[in-house]
Structures are given as structure tokens and as C-alpha cells.
């Protein structure tokens, strides 16, 4: 990787979820004008395999060292796109998301012009942040191979048995003096009547 910052912006239409409100073509033209942006791609669904393939392809072909995905909330697909760029050889922390769906197209549904303008600024802000992103190394910690199940009702019992049968030690903690929960108070239950 050279010292030059090379950003790829990937705009997701999310079917009509974003494209129905935000003018993605206009957004694309705008994104091209942002500093260090070397390519802008619009996809129908960026999270789907063809969309991810595009990201990987552009990272390699365009020698990208930052990726901005303008799509949904990072709470949903940040792990997806981190993995995607990492598969393309980029550190996962060099990917930034602009939330133009939950925080824009869905909440400003009736004002397409203003929503598009806001989407531009959200992308601009994400690009500004992306320029300053640094690769990060995640700490790897060992896993204690045992589970705690809190509550010994029907759900806790089932989960405990599944985990134990899979070969892992389980601590099942129940507040009452016996397991069984509400299930143990029921007579016959639907739909099997037993």
C-alpha cells in the first residue's frame, strides 16, 4: 500500500429502500468530487454477494486502501463489510459506513431533494472520517468453554440440554428450589394436549 489515500465509495440502493427516496445517481456524482475518492459504485444491494464481490474487486483493481459503504446502519452490516474488505486484504477497520437508510431515506421519505442532500453530507462525513482511519489489530482472547444458562424453565432446560449434548459443560442457575418454571404448573398444553 502506498502512502496515497485511495477511497472507494459503495452506494447501496437497498432496492427501493434507499433509492426510492435518495437519488443515488446524484449521490454518486457528488461522491466522486470528494477528496481522495477514486471510485464510486452504485449497487442494487451492496450486502448481497454480487455487491460484496464488487467491493472486493475494486479494492484489488483500484488499489483502494479505504472503503466507505453508504447503506444501512452499521449496527446491522458493519460486521458484514468488515469481513468483506478483510477478505480483499484490507484491515477491517479501514471500512466506514454512512447510514443513509435508517437515518435518512426512511425518516425523510417525503422530501426526496432534502433527503438526497442529507445523504450527500452523510457520505461526505464518512469520507472525512475514512481518510483518518487507521488499521487496528484486534485482541484475541481465549474462550472459556462452558456456558451459563440463567433460568430453568422450558427454555433454559432445552438450551442446557442442547449445549451439554454438544459436549460443553453447562451451569444452569435457577432462582426457585426446583427447575420446571411455569411449564411445571401447566396441565395439558396445546397443540398436542399432553
Amino acid at each position: 500500500m502506498g502512502s496515497e489515500t485511495r477511497i472507494g465509495v459503495f452506494i447501496c440502493e437497498c432496492g427501493s429502500n434507499i433509492a426510492g427516496t435518495v437519488n443515488c445517481m446524484e449521490l454518486m456524482e457528488y461522491a466522486k468530487s470528494l477528496p481522495d475518492v477514486v471510485c464510486v459504485v452504485v449497487n442494487r444491494y451492496t450486502c448481497a454477494e454480487p455487491g460484496q464481490q464488487e467491493i472486493r474487486r475494486y479494492v484489488c483493481e483500484q488499489d483502494l486502501n479505504r472503503v466507505v459503504v453508504a447503506a444501512c446502519t452499521p449496527k446491522m452490516h458493519e460486521p458484514t463489510f468488515r469481513k468483506c474488505v478483510s477478505d480483499a486484504g484490507l484491515n477491517p477497520y479501514l471500512m466506514e459506513m454512512a447510514n443513509i437508510r435508517e437515518h435518512c431515506s426512511w425518516v425523510h421519505h417525503f422530501d426526496k431533494a432534502k433527503a438526497t442532500q442529507k445523504a450527500k453530507e452523510l457520505v461526505k462525513s464518512a469520507v472525512a472520517r475514512a481518510r483518518l482511519l487507521e488499521p487496528q489489530k484486534e485482541l484475541e482472547v481465549p474462550v472459556t468453554q462452558a456456558a451459563l444458562v440463567i433460568g430453568g424453565g422450558i427454555a433454559g432446560i432445552q438450551a442446557s440440554l442442547d449445549l451439554a449434548n454438544a459436549g460443553y459443560p453447562v451451569w444452569l442457575v435457577e432462582k426457585a428450589p426446583s427447575i420446571g418454571g411455569i411449564m411445571s404448573q401447566l396441565n395439558k398444553t396445546y397443540p398436542t394436549m399432553d
Partner: peptide, 10 residues
């Protein structure tokens, strides 16, 4: 179950 440590009244 040998792998389940049951702690009731806890």
C-alpha cells in the same frame, strides 16, 4: 446430565 451443573435456589 453429567455435563450440567444444576444450581437451584440460587
Amino acid at each position: 446430565h453429567p455435563r450440567i451443573k444444576l444450581l437451584t435456589y440460587s
